[in-house]
Amino acid sequence: MPLPTASAMKALIQSDRNLDGAKLATRILLGRLRIEARNNPSLIDAKVAELIEFARANAYAADDLSHI
């Protein structure tokens, strides 16, 4: 499953959009990344990298994120 671009991942982290159809792990991780990026905006690239790494390690997450 092809992953969204880094810029799409960044936009997702910086948004308030719910991933209602996604697996629980994807939703909770996204929530945590949003909080950390909001508390410290300089971390945004690291949080995008973490989300990409999670999606590469978990096929269901790649599927969840392919719909954004």
Partner: peptide, 8 residues
């Protein structure tokens, strides 16, 4: 709190 659509 709302974690990406999961209510915690």
């Amino acid at each position: 709190a709302n974690y990406g659509g999961a209510l915690i």
